[in-house]
């Protein structure tokens, strides 16, 4: 099994930490992992993306052109990464702030209203865990218990009291992800 994932959005959305938790979850089940960030010189508000690979074999290139899964969290990333999903792959996105929805019909597309759900749960920071939950529903590549172990490893101990909240957010994402059928682009 090899899963090649791109997670892309704004800096400050938890893009890199979502990738890190996923990578740690892979280590917890003895997989090879790589986490390769790409971000501009700016911090909050700039674009940020991370390539995460989980595999049962030695990983060759940590840098890729095409992905099995794209998790897309803003319009700029949608413009850049929709075309990088392999045919038959999946694209997961939060419709919040998206004006041009994905249009490919050769991939599976899903929506998670993570911004809205995080606000309802009263903590904007768990946004990324809701998205991660949605992803794990569609691609159960790591077991939930290993994600929790991964969370413990990637959060410093003083934040461990937040783990139940994160688990709740993952479950929320799992129950909220819905398929989206792309409207084909009309060629004029």
């Amino acid at each position: 099994m090899t899963e090649e994932i791109i997670i892309a959005g704004f800096g400050g959305q938890g893009v890199l930490s979502m990738g890190k938790i996923l990578a740690y979850s892979g280590i917890m089940q003895n997989q090879e992992v790589s986490w390769m960030p790409s971000y501009g010189p700016e911090m909050r508000g700039g674009t940020a993306n991370v390539t995460v690979i989980l595999s049962d074999e030695r990983i060759s290139s940590p840098y890729l052109k095409l992905f099995d899964t794209a998790i897309i969290l803003n319009q700029q990333s949608m413009d850049k990464f929709e075309d990088t999903v392999k045919p038959g792959g999946i694209l997961i996105y939060d419709p919040n702030g998206i004006s041009v929805h994905p249009s490919r019909t050769d991939i599976e597309i899903f929506q998670v209203e993570a911004t809205k759900l995080a606000a309802e749960m009263g903590n904007k920071k768990i946004f990324n865990m809701i998205i991660l939950g949605g992803f794990l529903k569609e691609k159960p590549i790591v077991k939930l218990e290993n994600v929790i172990e991964g969370l413990k490893k990637s959060l410093s101990e003083r934040y461990h009291y937040l783990i139940p909240l994160n688990e709740e957010a993952i479950n929320k994402g799992m129950s909220s992800i819905i398929p989206y059928k792309a409207k084909e682009k009309v060629i004029q």
Partner: peptide, 9 residues
Amino acid sequence: GLIGQMMEK
């Protein structure tokens, strides 16, 4: 910069 900034096991 790639090997320095990426994370692996």
